[in-house]
Nucleic acid binder design. Structure first.
Lengths: 204, 204
DNA sequence: CCAATTACCAACTGATTGGTCGGTTTATTT
DNA sequence: AAATAAACCGACCAATCAGTTGGTAATTGG
């Protein structure tokens, strides 16, 4: 059993560093040697644990990326009351993470989607699946918000989810270059405005 | 003078095909040979006209991409009355272009921004400059809309511009994978909802 | 303690890349 | 038509890449 531990430890070191470099430099622009250099490991070690670069990346997506997106954007929302507030809170948190140069994984995900679009359908499938999990959870939460009296019954939950995800991905793309603090501020301000629009109208 | 015409004709053929392939496959994933093969031209011809791959790309950005973004997203808005309607119209047009698999250049731009982020600061600068032109124009148009009585005086024009650009870039990213028709529909619906929020309140 | 398995090393291969260069073809000038 | 210059050709180079292979060091079970 000890051997399995060592195996998994090495694999996770590779995956963790791999995700970091793939995110920073892009998948196609990151060589396996780049990753191995950072870990002082050799080609042999890599191909002992993984079949190919693609196989390696898919394992990162399924093991690391999925969990991170889930714990950052899905879990904080799931089953909570007052959906509009928890949603905007989770997005605020993600953008704050982004500002501290740490990886915010919603953006990591959308970055990879952009990179693999039209190039690798299989990987795209894995990435879109994660996106779908987020979307479905947003929709469910919004629907529940309707029955709980937090969200206006007339709003189209799917459309709102689309709009929220879109704007988040977009603002993150803009934030890569300078003044991300101001961008974040203005974005959140408008998101909250928009949320006022779809929140349960108080009866006069 | 005839020689100059031939020179420019060849250069433009290269740039046009280059933009197409760079957009489809990404810059780093597209070899110069790919482009030359499609044009039945040789390496010698390429390096006769351009100094390097990077130089070539920058010339595409400045000559082609800038013009396209400008004519698609800036010109239709500039100086028009009823800014919220012309803005949503221009975005609707862009998304319809996208659905017919034609390049919509706002997205081409944001794609390149994603690809070059953290890799090539010089190219990033050129790309962000174009983005800035769009943003500034949106802000100016919104401000004018205030004085003309179309836009609520209390809205933060810069924040609205940020929000509009973000959501557009984001929804385009999502549209790469299937059901773009439904996405577009839901997105436009919410954009118009949002615009209602910031339009001049009719006095009761 | 020893054999077997696991984990890793590092030189190598073949393909691809951006870029160079000496030469040829095509067009223009005189 | 000869001379000159512009436009283009394609073999070549050095670097880089994913992946292979034959070996070695470390760990573990008997």
């Amino acid at each position: 059993m000890e051997k399995n531990l060592k195996r998994m430890a090495t694999m996770q070191r590779m995956q963790s560093t791999g995700l970091e470099l793939f995110y920073q430099q892009g998948y196609y622009n990151t060589s396996i040697d780049d990753i191995l250099k950072k870990l002082s490991l050799s080609k042999g070690a890599f191909y002992y644990h993984f079949q190919s670069k693609e196989d390696f990346f898919i394992s990162i997506v399924q093991n690391l990326l999925f969990q991170k997106v889930y714990s950052m954007l899905v879990e904080p929302i799931e089953g909570q009351e007052d959906p509009l507030n928890v949603i905007s809170k989770s997005i605020e948190d993600a953008l704050e993470t982004a500002e501290h140069n740490t990886m915010d994984f919603g953006f990591v995900l959308s970055n990879f989607i952009t990179e693999f679009n039209g190039k690798n359908p299989e990987i795209m499938k894995y990435l879109m699946d994660i996106m779908k999990v987020w979307e479905v959870n947003l929709i469910t939460t919004l629907q529940k918000g309707k029955t709980d009296g937090y969200v206006d019954r007339h709003v189209d939950s799917e459309a709102v989810a689309t709009y929220v995800i879109s704007s988040y991905i977009g603002v993150r793309t803009l934030m890569v270059e300078g003044n991300s603090r101001m961008l974040r501020y203005k974005y959140i301000q408008q998101l909250k405005n928009y949320f006022k629009l779809i929140s349960q109208k108080a009866v006069a």
